[in-house]
Design a protein around this nucleic acid. Structure first.
Length: 563
RNA sequence: GCGCUCGUAGCUCAGCGGAUAGAGCAACGGACUUCUAAUCCGUCGGUCGUAGGUUCGAAUCCUACCGGGCGCGCCA
């Protein structure tokens, strides 16, 4: 009798190779037959079996029957031939145990697929991701770390899933500080060759003069006007500052292993020519009101102190433009010119209200049409061991370059140190704060980057010694079965992480995979096994290595061959 | 004052409507003639901030309160 292939029809319809989804599909007709209308099968992973469904429980009241009786009827009417064992359990759960034949067939399929069973999305979107966004003439510091790491992970995941990703590095390259900086540069004798290290001191020196020297302050203000009106000398000096800073940022990105490149810079200065038009258009649509000399939008539903309407200041009382105007212009550009279907702003949690207001005003103005979504991907702060915002002992902000230096010094290799920092940032829910702790993030055990890298290096070591290839995978030992189930959970993990912009869903899954592999490694000798068992285990190992490597690369974490 | 957000094991965190709440660290006890022990196994450890409410069923949803963080007009 030929072996059944329960997956064939399923996969051929274009459905993802996802056990949970497969079981849902099998359960749904039976549930509908019993309930008389469509019912969510609510298949979840379970501590009592591979998966469980609690759907019968929810139906009990409606049908006026005991849940166990309903569950039994659903079980009897469900066609699970070759797919799973089903059993009524507890108060009325359906326990589902996937058959070994399905498991091995599913593994065979993802092993033969260079995308590990994760098809490109059916409807690709153009996704514009705004992340990193450092300031010109300032060194990057820990405050830029999360946006850069999280944004890059999202860009990698969405791109891999087939979306058309446009990375946007919204550089702080404009505004009043540049009058001060350019003026200081002139005081110093024009555009010399300043390294960025000099530029940090340079910025601070300019700041001090601005705060203490009335004459300088006046000149700085005039310089802003000159710069903004296109004065060639001022522009040239400003360009020099921008160019130096961009070189420095690219250097940091290279060290961090971030995919932002020279073409991704899109400074705020680029929108200056659009700002008059933004105001004019908002005015025409009667979305602006004057308040204390400033032009403001008052989107509905936002209140501040005393319950008064909260303003979004589009043009300041002095006639200058603030960030709200620039953000609106950038949003309009990303949708109108870049053709975005989805906008992501990977910016810290404190700016949440600001972005909600910008989105609300953009909706009202018609710049953000119904089919396009805009999301603020907020994240919490990095805290020191004292529970407060991470600072140096002296209370200064920590420079990113220093942090990376220390990571490399503390770890056995740069890839390990950098990977540890990135994994620590990506492994928890991004909305929460997290405590920065070298010892914990560099630990070789636990939910850490080094643990994943170690697991990967162990698998890879097998292939340097194996001499033979892998063969048909069969699962017999419990550790093999557990590993197989985790391997098949890759697609749901990647999809959930990308759709919800929550990289930790993938990170946590990779940790589960590494842990399942470690158990397999302890219990199931590979190279010391013979024949078909050895070939099968090599197959599981190969799939594990590939999944770990792919998953880690989607998070932007290196997976070295040896560690 | 108003708003947002967070409060889960000693510590760091998952889980966010379903069966006795899970990991890791720390503590304690085991496993190295071994494919990388940078690992694995076991034990200990929780009235899920508090009090109500909705529900057959709540850490998960709602309300109030307590505690931490952040935001609340010309900085981004």
């Amino acid at each position: 009798m030929p072996p059944v292939d329960p997956l064939r029809s399923y996969v051929e319809v274009g459905l993802t190779l996802n056990l949970e989804a497969l079981l849902q599909d099998r359960l749904a007709p039976a549930l509908e037959a019993v309930a008389g209308h469509p019912v969510d099968p609510a298949v979840r992973s379970s501590p009592h079996a591979d998966f469980q469904s609690g759907a019968a429980l929810a139906l009990a009241r409606e049908l006026g029957r005991p849940p166990r009786e309903i569950a039994a009827e659903v079980a009897a009417k469900t066609d699970l031939a070759g797919v799973a064992e089903i059993a009524v359990s507890g108060p009325g759960f359906l326990n589902l145990t996937v058959s070994d034949s399905l498991l091995t067939e599913a593994l065979r399929r993802i092993a033969a697929d260079d995308r590990l069973g994760v098809p490109p999305v059916a409807a690709p979107e153009r996704v514009v991701i705004d992340y990193s966004g450092p300031n010109v003439a300032k060194e990057m510091h820990v405050g830029h770390l999360r946006s850069t790491i999280i944004g890059d992970a999202l860009a990698r995941m969405l791109e891999w899933l087939g979306h058309d990703v446009i990375r946007v590095n919204h550089l702080g390259d404009w505004g009043t500080p540049f009058g001060m900086l350019v003026e200081h540069l002139i005081d110093r004798g024009g555009a010399g060759d300043h390294s960025i290290g000099d530029l940090t001191a340079f910025y601070q020196a300019a700041r001090v003069k601005f705060d203490t020297d009335d004459d300088f302050r006046t000149r700085a203000r005039l310089r802003v006007v000159a710069l903004q009106s296109g004065d060639p000398v001022s522009r040239e000096l400003w360009r020099n500052l921008v160019a130096q800073s961009e070189r420095y940022f690219l250097d940091v990105y290279a060290r961090l292993g971030v995919t932002l490149g020279p073409d991704d810079f899109a400074g705020e200065s680029g929108y200056q020519a659009d700002l008059d038009g933004i105001v004019a258009e908002l005015g025409e649509k009667e979305l602006l009101a004057e308040s204390d000399g400033a032009l403001c939008a008052f989107p509905e539903g936002f209140t501040g102190r005393d319950g008064a309407a909260l303003p979004l200041i589009v043009r300041k009382a002095d006639g200058g433009y603030g960030y709200a105007a620039t953000d609106l212009a950038a949003l309009r550009h990303r949708i109108g010119r870049l053709g975005a279907d989805r906008l992501l702003y990977v910016v810290g949690a404190p700016q949440r209200i600001h972005f909600e207001m910008v989105f609300a005003v953009a909706r009202a103005a018609g710049w953000l049409p119904d089919g396009v979504t805009a999301e603020h991907i907020g994240f919490g702060s990095i805290l020191g061991s004292d529970g407060k915002m991470l600072k140096t002992r002296a209370g200064d902000t920590i420079k990113l370059a220093r942090l990376l230096d220390e990571a490399v010094t503390r770890a056995s290799a740069p890839a390990v140190g950098i990977g540890a920092i990135k994994y620590a940032d990506l492994s928890g829910d991004r909305r929460g704060d997290y405590v920065f702790d070298w010892d914990r993030m560099l630990a070789s055990t636990g939910n850490t980057g080094p643990y994943l890298q170690y697991a990967h290096a162990r698998v890879r070591s097998l292939f340097r010694k194996a001499g033979t290839g892998s063969g048909t995978v069969t699962v017999t030992e419990p550790a093999e079965r557990d590993l197989a189930l985790v391997l098949l959970g890759f697609e749901p993990a990647v999809t959930a992480a990308a759709e919800r912009a929550e990289p930790h869903r993938l990170a946590v899954h990779l940790h589960e995979l590494a842990a399942a592999f470690s158990v397999f490694w302890e219990r199931c000798p590979v190279l010391r096994a013979d024949g078909a068992v050895r070939a099968s285990r090599l197959g599981l190992a190969a799939l594990t290595a590939r999944t770990l490597q792919t998953g880690m690369s989607l998070l932007g974490i290196e997976a070295p061959e040896e560690i």
